[in-house]
Nucleic acid binder design. Structure first.
Length: 264
DNA sequence: TCTTTATGGTGAG
DNA sequence: TCACCCTAAAGAT
């Protein structure tokens, strides 16, 4: 429902399949993207790709639309007949009407700007051709807590506050362990887990990290209050050892962990 | 009907 | 480290 890397990759895929090769109708009901939407209107989506939490839509191979949802942005499908509100920055019409609200970024950019953005990103486990040793090198260079490194988009692209806490729990890694002190096995584990979890996130279009064994049901059918191990579960019992889940602030964001399952 | 919070990121001091 | 941007749902009153 909300944006970490899986959301953006799923969005990229859904928009591509919705628009196909037909011209798209574009407008900016809110008016803040009037100019841009006018340029896009009537053009065809020629490419749709995600890099971490960034979405890039190319139109007629000449315009590049850069969208970043930030913390509160949404890009959701509605029926073609649906009306818009004055918070809709961009409305794109294909088979459905896609409403973009509250984005951190919605702008037409040049190739240079595109390269600038993507150059600043670490490897995205959902993109082809990315190698885990890039991630390993980035982690090994940092003394900051591993929980902080995981949120740094130049270390690994697409991880957000939910996934970072969940990954560290699943692998039994204390969030405050200095990044450079992680073993190769742990770093490799983080990368493989990220890849598997983000893929599942794309497939389900939601984050479900709890395993079948721990939840008792298939990931696609897990209740929302049983989908995660630690995120937003402070003082509730750990799903594995029943110890109280703890919370702290790391990298300016809240981080949850289990003292017993994730020893220092 | 308020106030708070949020899966993010930037730019100022 | 902090203020700030943008919106909507959840929680408090």
């Amino acid at each position: 429902m909300v944006p970490e890397g899986h959301t953006i990759h799923r969005l990229s895929r859904d928009l591509r399949s919705d628009f196909g090769t037909h011209p798209v109708k574009a407008s900016s009901p809110q008016g803040r993207f009037q100019n841009g939407s006018t340029q896009i209107n009537g053009k065809t989506l020629s490419k749709s790709e995600a890099w971490g939490k960034h979405l890039f839509l190319s139109f007629d191979d000449e315009l590049i639309l850069h969208v970043h949802l930030g913390l509160i942005g949404k890009f959701r499908p509605h029926s073609i007949e649906s009306s818009t509100t004055d918070t809709v920055r961009l409305r794109l019409e294909g088979k459905q009407a896609w409403h973009l609200t509250g984005p951190q970024k919605c702008a037409l950019i040049s190739i240079d700007e595109f390269v600038n953005v993507t150059d600043g990103l670490g490897p995205d486990p959902l993109r082809r051709g990315t190698r885990w040793n890039h991630f390993a090198e980035n982690v090994a260079l940092r003394r900051t807590p591993i929980a902080v490194s995981l949120l740094d988009q130049s270390v690994i692209a697409g991880i957000g506050n939910v996934y970072r806490a969940e990954f560290l729990f699943i692998l039994g890694i204390h969030p405050e362990r200095p990044s450079c002190e992680l073993t190769d096995t742990e770093i490799r584990g983080l990368w493989e887990l990220a890849r598997a979890q983000l893929r599942q996130g794309v497939r389900l279009n939601r984050i479900v990290t709890v395993s079948r064994e721990d939840s008792g049901s298939v990931p696609g059918r897990v209740n929302s209050d049983e989908a995660l191990y630690v995120y937003k579960r402070e003082s509730q019992p750990c799903r594995r050892c029943r110890a109280a889940i703890r919370i702290t602030e790391l990298g300016g964001r809240k981080c949850w962990w289990c003292d017993r399952c994730q020893p220092r």
